[in-house]
């Protein structure tokens, strides 16, 4: 079954198209990595998938339902959760409160004027456990390290019981020593939630090849190549437009 289906998606911001004629089918439970040089349109395409950017042309469906015109909020209700390249969360709140808010948004409890203060539940606890932030739950989120901010965003996404998880550059800006931990974390998530579909954009090829079932190479807003990770890595085209000739097998 197809989780996320893009057909002939174009996007321009009034000027030349940033994304052109992108068609992409992502199966349920699959992990797809989108790679490409800067300016290739990865972030825009990601925005289209998350409902933050509206496609100028083409169709986006989620589990067979047309969501081309649905906004970010409606997609979130349909089970799409995302993280941002620069982690976004609620700075004034503690780690736990951030995850609790994501949880209450998912449960549509924002309408509730009278209830007790938002509470933690098992899903919140599990999300914090899954990213290893249980012991930091009461810390002000603004004091977290860069890597932990990224983890917090993932915990917020998990609190929404996502059926599709979009990870925009999960290791961007991380020190080399933190990257293996994040890869392990994401691998663990994949293993514990086989039904969850995952889309990742990444610059770090270690992340891509460790996690992806399928790799999509984007160049100048178009899909230049897509296939199994090894196929894409070994294709001359990938070397030419992205990895560069200095990228070697023995990384």
């Amino acid at each position: 079954m197809i989780a996320l289906d893009l057909v002939g998606v174009d996007k321009n911001y009034g000027g030349p198209p940033v994304v052109q004629d992108v068609s992409l089918s992502i199966e349920v439970g699959e992990t797809v990595a989108i790679i490409g040089p800067n300016g290739a349109g990865k972030t825009t395409l990601f925005g289209v998938m998350a409902g933050e950017t509206r496609a100028t042309k083409g169709r986006v469906s989620l589990f067979g339902k047309d969501v081309t015109r649905a906004g970010a909020r409606h997609l979130a209700e349909q089970g799409v959760a995302r993280t941002f390249q620069v982690a976004r969360y609620f700075l004034e709140k503690t780690v736990e409160e951030n995850v609790v808010i994501a949880r209450l948004a998912h449960q549509s409890r924002y309408r509730n004027l009278v209830s007790k203060s938002p509470r933690s539940d098992d899903t919140v606890d599990l999300a914090l456990d899954a990213v290893g932030l249980s012991s930091a739950r009461r810390r002000p989120s603004a004091t977290l390290s860069h890597g932990d901010r990224k983890s917090l965003e993932i915990a917020m996404a998990l609190a929404q019981d996502p059926s599709v998880l979009l990870l925009d550059e999960p290791t961007a800006g991380m020190g080399a020593e933190d990257i293996p931990g994040t890869i392990e974390l994401l691998k663990g998530l994949r293993a514990s939630r086989p039904e969850m579909t995952c889309v990742i954009t990444a610059h770090d090829m270690n992340v891509v090849f460790a996690l992806a079932d399928k790799v999509v190479l984007l160049a100048n807003g178009r899909i230049a190549l897509q296939g199994l990770p090894d196929e894409v890595r070994d294709a001359p085209l990938t070397r030419e437009i992205y990895l560069g000739n200095s990228y070697r097998e023995d990384r």
Partner: peptide, 9 residues
């Protein structure tokens, strides 16, 4: 950095 626990623990 906060101590990380193994994923899923």
């Amino acid at each position: 950095m906060t101590t990380k626990t193994a994923p899923g623990t």
